[in-house]
């Protein structure tokens, strides 16, 4: 299958600061998440893909063409930016209609498309109000509408759920899923794993300007299991607990932290560890106050992958 986005040694520097670092990838059509903590380089990567920035080194191609200053590419992509910025003196409808006009549509067609796009994102009710009066969720929907108004083949959504309420989040998630089912290619960035997981199983993980891994959720979890997980247990009888953990459970490292009254372990097999620990916890004489793991956070995922590299 032909790639819609192709990057070769793609690098972007802001002076001496690295935005994107030597990224090589081929993204086939479909819905994909771009995951990374804040400052990982997601927005820079998306700006390179949408032709707003020019690579410092290497190249990026979208639909086989360089996107920088390329009207043919712009006709085929819809971009929903992260920043909460608008021509706030316009109504939502005027904003979307104007951007449809800038996409090359005649006034009547731009009007029809703007109405349809606003309806699609569920913004018809308030589309004739000034954007300045909109809530964050309304503004997110309006941004989505402008990205959809010219019916692009590739949608690039930078943190589209940021700041939305639960209903808005559900609606926008459903909208993105629906667009995916219609056959649109979508690249959606977020720093929240479950946001992206709600729309796709396919991920790209980016950190420090580099793409660390790509694949589906299972593959990425598999990668995570290659490096140890850290689990911290606050408990009584820490020396005794540590001995039993070393003897009975699959751990690769252990540390007693008397200051925090905790035992910290590293394991490559968290499933087996939790099962064995459940039995141990039920034994007499051990009092477990708290057990925490950092594995559910995106930061932990990236720390694992950086450590692996």
């Amino acid at each position: 299958m032909d790639s819609i986005i192709k990057a070769r040694s793609l690098t972007k520097l802001y002076g001496v600061v690295i935005g994107v670092n030597d990224v090589t990838l081929d993204l086939p059509p479909g819905v994909r998440g771009l995951l990374g903590p804040n400052g990982a380089g997601k927005s820079t990567f998306l700006k390179l893909v949408t032709g707003q920035l020019n690579p410092t080194e290497g190249e990026v191609r979208v639909f086989g063409e360089r996107p920088w200053n390329n009207a043919d590419v712009f006709r085929r992509i819809g971009f929903c930016p992260e920043q909460d910025s608008f021509y706030a003196f316009l109504t939502g409808y005027e904003f979307v209609r104007t951007l449809a006009r800038l996409s090359g549509y005649e006034p009547a067609e731009a009007k029809r498309r703007a109405e349809r796009a606003m309806e699609r994102v569920g913004a018809t009710e308030y589309m004739h109000r000034k954007i300045a009066t909109y809530s964050k969720g309304m503004r997110q929907r309006t941004k989505m509408a402008q990205a959809l108004v010219h019916d692009p083949a590739l949608l690039i959504l930078d943190e589209p759920l940021s700041g939305t309420d639960p209903i808005g989040r559900r609606d926008l998630t459903e909208l993105v899923r629906g667009l995916g089912r219609e056959g649109k290619s979508i690249l959606v960035s977020s720093h929240v794993l479950h946001e992206v997981q709600a729309v796709t199983e396919e991920f790209l993980l980016i950190y420090g300007g580099r793409v660390l891994a790509s694949g589906n959720v299972r593959e990425i979890r598999g990668l995570m299991n290659e490096v140890p997980h850290r689990i911290t247990i606050r408990c009584s009888d820490r020396k005794d607990v540590a001995q039993r953990l070393m003897r009975d459970l699959p751990i690769t490292g252990i540390e007693i932290d008397e200051a925090r009254e905790a035992v910290s372990v590293l394991t490559r097999d968290p499933g087996a560890f939790y099962e064995g620990f459940r039995r141990l916890a039920l034994e007499d004489g051990v009092r477990i106050m708290e057990m925490t793991t950092e594995d559910d956070t995106m930061d932990a995922v990236f720390r694992y992958l950086v450590a692996r590299d």
Binding site: T50, G51, D72, R75, F79, P81, S85, L99, S103
Partner: peptide
Amino acid sequence: EDKTLTYLFTRPLPR
């Protein structure tokens, strides 16, 4: 300053 340039620069409008 208004961060609206993104909307103009991602449209097929000659600069």
